[in-house]
Structures are given as C-alpha cells and as structure tokens.
Computed example of a mutant assay.
Amino acid sequence: MKNLASIFVFLVCMAWLMFFSACKEKRGEMKTIRYVGSYNRDFNDLNEVHLLEAQRIGVKPLASREAAGHAAKKMVEIESNKVYEVEELTYSIPFLIPEAAELLESIGRNFRDSLKNLNAPEYKVLVTSVTRTEADVKKLRRRNLNASPNSAHRYGTTFDVSWKRFLKIDDKDPVNVEPEKLKMVLASVLKDLKKQNLCYVKHERKQGCFHITVRNK
C-alpha cells in the first residue's frame, strides 16, 4: 500500500510539473522590452491643447457631484474590467463621454495585447483620475496648489493613467515585469494612438501619470 501511495504522489507531482512546463512553453520566453523615443518630447501636449479639445467636444462642467446625475445621461460610467482597473477616486467621478470611454478601452486592450506579443505576464493599466466637478477641483487645489483650476478633467473627455503602478492579472505567475518596462509598453501604445490623432497626451512626471484627452477628428 505504501508503494502504491508513493507511486500516486509521484504521478501527481509529475502531472503538475508537466502542466506548469506546458504553460511556460505556451507563453514562450519574454522578449526584450524597449521604448524608442522620449517621454517628455513625445507626450508634451500642453494643458491649453487638452482644454480646447475638451471644451469643443465635452460636456459642460458640473458644479458638484449632486449635479452629475443629469449630465451622466451624456456620459457613460467606467468600471474596472478585463483591460483596465479604476482605482478608488477621491477627487473625480467615474464618468466619461462615450468617445473617451472607447479610447480608454482601446488603451487597456492594446496594452494587454502588446504584453501578450512580448510573451510577458499580463497586467492592467490603472486609471487614477477621471471627470472632476467644480467642487472636486476646489478640494484638489487645497491639497495641491499646482492643480489647474481650468482643467480639461471637467469636461468628461480626460483621464489619467498611472505609469508608476500596474495591476498584475495572475499573482501566481512567478515572472514579474518592472514598472519602468511596463511604462515603455504603455508609452508605445499611446504613441501609436497619438499618431492616429485619437488623443492628446501629457507625460506628468510629478504625478506619475499620463494625462490623456480624447480627440474627435
């Protein structure tokens, strides 16, 4: 009986080893991750550019969160899904105009597809700020004097995506990718979307995010 038990344990262990080896072979060796360009030069659209487009295609600024109910009819609520994660929002509400919501979806989807092509573990981008009411802007400026009182975030067209932090999909995956490498992948995705005139992007060094406004061609 002891021999049979030992054989059973051995077979189970071998099955697990074969399973994990197959998974590793299926993904393949991770390719080299690099970004050709400069974050500050490639993503240098100033606030005035974001603001003009936001005012042209966005909703009217909301006085408060209580007033958001009516304006929400012109926007869509964004929620964490398979391609991006919405962090707990302190100074903004999770609503965007449909075009901006579609852009965010494209960013998240292209980011994960790029990681798959690189044979890298899957991660999700983190959305750190979305639409701000006038009350949100005032509260934020009490905490951060550098925050613009005339922000594109007020029009439902603009959101921030972190380049410092990302959410790993499978915590059991032993392979990890450094945030700086993931930033390179995200930057490549954004650069491609910018070339298609789908968005304006500002590389925010102090805030650790990409500030993104959808464009309506």
Rank of each mutant, 00 (worst) to 15 (best):
H153L: 05
A15C: 11
R141S: 07
E85M: 10
F10V: 15
T157R: 08
L17H: 12
S129D: 05
T131F: 06
V125R: 01
D160Q: 06
R165Q: 13
A147L: 06
E29F: 07
I78Q: 02
H70M: 09
G108S: 07
K82L: 13
T133N: 09
K73Q: 14
N117H: 08
S38R: 06
R27S: 04
N119D: 12
H203Q: 06
A68N: 09
H211N: 03
Y200G: 02
V127Y: 02
F95P: 10
K31P: 00
K73I: 14
T128K: 07
N216H: 10
F20D: 13
L118A: 04
C23Q: 14
F20C: 09
E122K: 01
S38Y: 04
K124V: 00
V175P: 03
S106A: 11
E105S: 03
L96V: 07
N81T: 02
V175E: 12
S148T: 06
L145G: 10
P174E: 08
E204D: 15
R112E: 00
I97W: 04
L62P: 11
R205H: 14
D170L: 15
L186E: 01
Y39C: 00
Y35C: 00
N197H: 10
V76N: 07
V59D: 14
Q55W: 08
H203I: 06
L190D: 01
V83D: 04
L89D: 05
V59A: 15
A71E: 07
G208S: 05
L62N: 13
F8R: 11
V177M: 03
I78K: 03
I169L: 15
I33P: 03
E88F: 14
V12H: 03
K168S: 04
E105T: 00
I33Y: 02
R215Q: 05
K138V: 09
F20N: 15
N40S: 13
G28N: 03
K172N: 11
K191H: 04
D160L: 04
L96H: 11
S106K: 08
P174C: 10
D171N: 15
K181P: 07
M1S: 15
K202T: 07
E66S: 13
A187V: 00
A147T: 09
K202D: 04
A22E: 10
R65G: 15
K24Y: 12
L17V: 11
N216C: 12
Q196H: 13
K138D: 08
S6L: 09
E66T: 13
M30C: 09
T157W: 04
N197K: 12
S92G: 08
V177T: 03
N146F: 08
R215F: 00
I57N: 09
L96N: 09
L167C: 10
L190A: 04
L52S: 15
C23L: 13
K124C: 01
L193V: 04
P179T: 01
D42P: 01
N150R: 15
W163E: 02
C13F: 11
E79V: 12
I93Y: 10
A120I: 01
I57M: 11
